[in-house]
């Protein structure tokens, strides 16, 4: 299935190339299970582009952080490949005027889901996965212990299993046909609801247990397409001094409050913060909880309508109940 889409992607990239100065996509990584972003500046390299269930990175992360300020030569644009979830990040950046729509040529990739490598490792139990075959419904995983089969659904990323927007919400061209969403808004917050069912003490214990592992490497922040302060993050400034260098739990909680609250009403649920965490802390859940709140309270979901202003960046004099 993928080779067809891959050649379609190549064809559409070729067609768009005359208007582009740069194209951001995915290429093969150091083994079959890893992809790495590629910045194409020469049309001869379009053939490097790939599209498959391993294309995990949200390329919107580069858009505001690396290229927002650059202005194109001869009105040339920056091409960027986005999955459904990634497209929401782009829209959120547009909502905040952090990037200009005209600067980008958006190649939309309707997405059936991305494989979660950690789930594969957990399921295989082996230190080394030798190969993986993915088809429409099944994954065949080969390790020294033999070949194991799993339903594809079981090994998808958490964000994919709750995906409501598999089709890019903004694009100049689509690669492949639009797909049917997996869940609706009602089911999307099941993981949050599961935590909400715990008692207050259990919730505190849960987060203490998870956040205890945090290294404060800040990768979750750097991988976030909407954490745009980057080098000026208050988690690292000494004046004002929000955090010490200690590795005590209160510091770790505080860092995650900083990240999450700065994403309230802005997080597009791309799941990158959670994916990149080397300590496998489910940090995206915190932002999902905030999204559930902003949805219920302020009827807003980030990254859907480029015209809408994120609710915490504005106010409504007439609203009641708060």
């Amino acid at each position: 299935m993928n080779s067809d889409l891959r050649s379609e992607l190549h064809k559409k990239a070729e067609q768009a190339w005359p208007d582009l100065e740069l194209l951001i996509g995915w290429q093969a990584g150091y083994d079959d299970l890893h992809t790495t972003p590629v910045f194409i500046r020469d049309s001869a390299e379009i053939s490097k582009l790939i599209w498959n269930p391993w294309c995990t990175q949200n390329l919107a992360v580069y858009v505001a952080k690396h290229f927002a300020a650059s202005s194109g030569k001869d009105d040339k644009k920056i091409g960027v490949c986005v999955k459904g979830c990634d497209s929401r990040s782009l829209i959120a950046l547009l909502q905040e005027n952090l990037v200009a729509r005209e600067r980008f040529y958006i190649i939309g990739m309707p997405c059936k889901g991305i494989v979660d490598l950690r789930k594969l490792h957990a399921l295989s139990g082996a230190a080394r996965i030798l190969s993986v075959q993915v088809n429409a419904e099944q994954v065949a995983l080969k390790s020294a212990a033999g070949v194991l089969h799993f339903p594809l659904d079981e090994v998808l990323m958490r964000k994919c299993r709750r995906c409501r927007y598999p089709n890019p919400l903004i694009h100049d061209v689509l690669v492949g046909d639009p797909l049917t969403p997996r869940t609706d808004a009602h089911e999307a917050y099941n993981d949050v609801a599961a935590i909400e069912r715990l008692s207050l003490q259990e919730r505190l214990a849960f987060w203490q247990g998870e956040l205890d592992r945090c290294l404060r490497c800040y990768a979750c922040r750097n991988a976030c397409p909407l954490c745009v302060c980057q080098d000026r993050c208050i988690a690292e400034t000494r004046d004002p001094k929000w955090l010490t260098q200690y590795m005590h739990l209160p510091e770790k909680f505080m860092f995650h409050f900083i990240h999450a609250l700065h994403l309230a009403g802005r997080c597009t649920e791309c799941g990158e913060c959670e994916r990149v965490c080397p300590m496998e802390i489910p940090v995206a859940l915190i932002k999902e909880a905030l999204n559930k709140i902003t949805l219920e309270l302020l009827d807003f979901e980030a990254g859907l309508d480029p015209q809408r202003v994120p609710p915490l960046l504005t106010f409504d004099a007439g609203e009641t109940g708060i």
């Binding site: 949050v192 935590i195 909400e196 207050l200 003490q201 259990e202 919730r203 505190l204 214990a205 849960f206 987060w207 203490q208 909680f253 409050f257 999450a260 609250l261 309230a264 009403g265 915190i286 909880a289 905030l290 709140i293 902003t294 309270l297 302020l298 609710p311 915490l312 504005t314 106010f315 409504d316 004099a317 708060i322």
Partner: peptide, 30 residues
Amino acid sequence: PKDCHYAVGNLYARRRLEVLKRMLPFMGID
């Protein structure tokens, strides 16, 4: 609300404060 010395400061604030209030228990804080 509507009596803010700076006209709208508390209108921004009440959204933020309400969001925080609802988020605290998710993290185990009453």
